[in-house]
Design a protein around this nucleic acid. Structure first.
Lengths: 345, 345
DNA sequence: TTGAAAGCGCTACCAG
DNA sequence: CTGGTAGCGCTTTCAA
């Protein structure tokens, strides 16, 4: 033991042993008082709890986890907290995790570092489950986790071929909702501004949108590549889009943040929203509700998604991590605000 | 050992013992190979690392922490991730924490739950340090932590009387910067819209602003109470403010988010920014840079603040948590954008 | 219901 | 430099 450790021990930590000595009982008894399932006399338990409290004793969950093999820690891997949408996710996830008497251990990959590099470190912490909201997982790594029986769930993304849990908003259905809404409100020339080209979120939103337009007999839609999900991307794409002769009368942006950029571009040009162009986003971040945006958008069911993710890794009910990997798609809802209009009126 | 534990053990975890057996060395040797300071033959170390890797062995940091009394876990208590400013803080803090080979354990108080309720749980995790960005700490709790030698630092807040580390932006200096800037650019009737009345952030920004105006001989300033730091609050306060006969020619909002609300209100009324009214915020959240806002604001030195917080709790350099409690104020900088104008021109 | 004892996986000391 | 040994604080058998 180092000097530091000795000193710490001396000053600080009250152990079960200490409580036992004071009460003249065995250390096991102290342990039992803090284990719900253990058999202990009601009276003994009360006495233990009382003096434990007086001495400031609380079980060391780290030591406990060595035996129980449960740390009550869930790892969340997330790459960009600055994105309001991610902040929403993390918030919902931690709440749910805390509801299961666990805590969130956060892993933010440094620039140029990917999940693969982080996973070994992460596993050293013996976490009970892993939620990955950034990037995805190689099948090798998935296997490593499976071998250790550490359940993993991808959040807001999925990999069709991979044997791993995943939870995502039903982005395709969301895209379809938008298509229906725009056609119902008599738009004739809708456009989609795409986000990160390879993200399933982007691909599915786009596919749902286009396929539903198709089903409804609309063929004159436009596609504009944003490049990423950012404000700049939305701004630039909107500028390009309205520069065309066949200007769209409605633009569906792959994310709210892009839509905000788009709104800015449109206003700069002098176009009115929604009179000249309707704008729709995706996510429903808090800012979408601000009157200046009044953004019609698809609300991601963040709480339900978080709940489902935690359920899949079997946190709520001990031991019941769903054995066969499942991908859950949770439907979002369209929130109508002032950035869209019914063109018949 | 429960059935679950047994099963897990059987399938998953490779221990130092396993590696030792394969190599025909002692388990201590395996441990040494993973301890930088331990003395071990270069060749032995290489062999250990190689087969450890082949077997998929990595030291169990939880077990290690039982002896070393360092978990390499830092608790961060934060109440509202949805606030972009908090997201910025958490992002910076985790980065810094990870740079010290530690990880962030997140604690989000549930509604109606305060830090006091959380602290016991938190301490059970034997974290190496605690960063509190929500609320503050009673002196009792501060003493509990001191007794356990778990360093604590308040972030973005401080309590003058309390014997505890704290890091904050120099909000007073920030307020003074704003006052100077507005007067230098020939504003004659500045206003301050306050945030949460009792927050040190709000009080200090206001005091700095007013006192510097005073020093500069300006006496015709206005104060409007926002009530909190939100968008709505800024919106409502701005409406009240410009409804007055003696309308201000510049408004300093206690936060960027409030300023966005204010901008919205002003535009709604038909006032131009900055021609009719200059607007200044505080924080410099990413949205402030969006052209639609172009918000002149005080940038909080988030990275420096995070660095200082981590330094104060002595994470970088083992054992060197600053013994006497210190409050660090880090100066912010004024970022000039398009929401303000020089009125002489 | 309780106490004694055996570890969980690891580090840190003590001999050699 | 290496192996043996004694724990870290706790849970969980096994007897009593």
């Amino acid at each position: 033991m180092t000097e530091l450790a000795k000193k710490r021990r001396a000053v600080s930590q009250v152990t079960a042993e200490d409580v036992a000595r004071v009460l003249g009982v065995s250390q096991s008894t102290i342990s039992r008082a803090f284990t719900a399932s253990a058999s202990i006399a009601e009276d003994t338990k009360r006495r233990v709890l009382k003096t434990a409290n007086a001495l400031g004793y609380r079980p060391n969950v780290i030591a406990r986890s060595l035996i129980t093999r449960r740390t009550n820690i869930v790892a969340v891997v997330m790459d960009n907290l600055t994105d309001p949408c991610n902040a929403l996710f993390l918030d919902a996830l931690s709440q749910r995790i805390q509801n299961c008497s666990c805590q969130t251990l956060l892993f933010i990959p440094a620039a140029g570092q990917d999940v693969e590099d982080i996973l070994p470190t992460l596993l050293q912490y013996q976490v009970d489950a892993i939620v990955i909201t950034s990037a995805t997982l190689s099948s090798t790594m998935a296997r490593t986790c499976a071998l250790r029986e550490t359940p993993v769930v991808l959040f807001n993304r999925y990999v069709p071929g991979l044997d791993i849990h995943a939870v995502s908003c039903d982005n395709e259905a969301g895209g379809r909702l938008v298509a229906e809404f725009l056609i119902k409100t008599s738009h004739v020339r809708p456009a989609y501004v795409s986000g990160l080209p390879d993200a399933t979120t982007n691909i599915d939103r786009k596919r749902g949108f286009i396929s539903r337009l198709d089903e409804l007999g609309v063929t004159s839609w436009l596609i504009e590549e944003g490049g990423d999900y950012g404000h700049e991307a939305g701004y630039a794409a909107a500028k390009r889009l309205v520069g065309r002769r066949d200007r769209p009368d409605a633009i569906f942006f792959a994310s709210d943040i892009m839509a905000f950029g788009g709104i800015e571009a449109l206003r700069e040009i002098g176009l009115r929203i929604p009179e000249d162009v309707s704008v729709i986003g995706f996510d429903d971040v808090p800012m979408a509700a601000w009157p200046s945006h009044g953004l019609t958008t698809i609300r991601q069911p963040v709480k339900e998604m978080a709940g489902e993710a935690i359920a899949l890794v079997g946190l709520g009910s001990l031991e019941s991590a769903s054995p066969e990997p499942r991908t859950s798609f949770i439907p979002g809802t369209l929130v109508e605000r002032t950035s869209t209009i019914d063109r018949r009126r």
